[in-house]
């Protein structure tokens, strides 16, 4: 599967490398806007887009049909996209948390370690949920129709954020609904479980898909 991974990492860097620059801009914005730390955490949210972008490129150049002639199973072709998602969001999550800490240091704000860990767990969970909810649609219907699921998940995420009234992470917001730390970890566990189910579902869909 190494070959597939090398190809996908190259594609991710080639087509999504600009996300790193945008991530740094967002961290800068979070420092400039002392009232809103959410910007520092945005970069991690980009990670979910990476496997979807690579899948769209694959479909455009007919890589999927070509790869059927290579010594890879359909399960491997699916798995590489989930692994790519993990490989992208872990560093971006770390960058986000580092950005947040830099922001706190620059603005001389105190950071509550326990709250920061819970927020990071929440961030990881959201990043797991994003590909978990969208990738099965991409594998079942292809990139074009799968995009509908992508927009639906984005919409649902922002509706969720708005409903909770979350305006800042790591520090108390104006009047947010407080999310207890344990809830963040439970949420992360559920997201991980959903990610695993989504992985298996995508393998099942893709094995049946005919080009």
């Amino acid at each position: 599967m190494k070959g597939l991974l090398i190809k996908d990492l190259y594609m991710a860097f080639r087509h999504c490398g600009v996300l790193l620059v945008i991530a740094l801009v967002f961290i800068g914005v979070s420092i400039a806007d002392a009232d809103n730390a959410l910007f520092a955490f945005f970069p991690a949210l980009f990670a979910g887009v990476v496997p979807l972008t690579v899948m769209s490129c694959d479909e455009q150049c007919k890589w999927n049909e070509y790869a059927d002639g290579l010594p890879y199973s359909r399960a491997q072709m699916v798995s590489v996209k989930y692994i790519l998602g993990l490989l992208c969001f872990v560093p971006l999550c770390i960058l986000s948390v580092a950005g947040f800490m830099l922001r706190a240091a620059v603005l001389q704000q105190s950071v509550e370690a326990a709250q920061l860990c819970a927020d990071a767990a929440l961030l990881f969970a959201v990043n797991l949920l994003f590909p978990a909810c969208t990738l099965p649609f991409f594998f079942r219907f292809g990139a074009n129709k799968g995009r509908i699921a992508y927009y639906a998940v984005i919409g649902a995420f922002f509706a969720f954020v708005a409903a909770l009234g979350i305006s800042s992470f790591g520090a108390p917001a104006a009047e947010p609904i407080a999310i207890p730390a344990y809830a963040a970890y439970i949420f992360l566990g559920c997201a991980a479980l959903l990610f695993a189910i989504s992985w298996l579902l995508s393998v099942w869909f893709y094995r049946k898909r005919e080009f």
């Binding site: 070959g3 597939l4 190259y10 694959d58 007919k62 070509y66 002639g69 290579l70 010594p71």
Partner: peptide, 28 residues
């Protein structure tokens, strides 16, 4: 591993070049 396939449309990613294709296939 023992089959070479040339489909009617060669599906290499547009941005890749022959050198990169080689490095992917070396690991395939």
């Amino acid at each position: 591993e023992d089959i070479g396939v040339v489909p009617d449309e060669i599906g290499f990613p547009y941005s890749m070049n022959a050198k990169l294709v080689g490095s992917v296939m070396r690991r395939t």
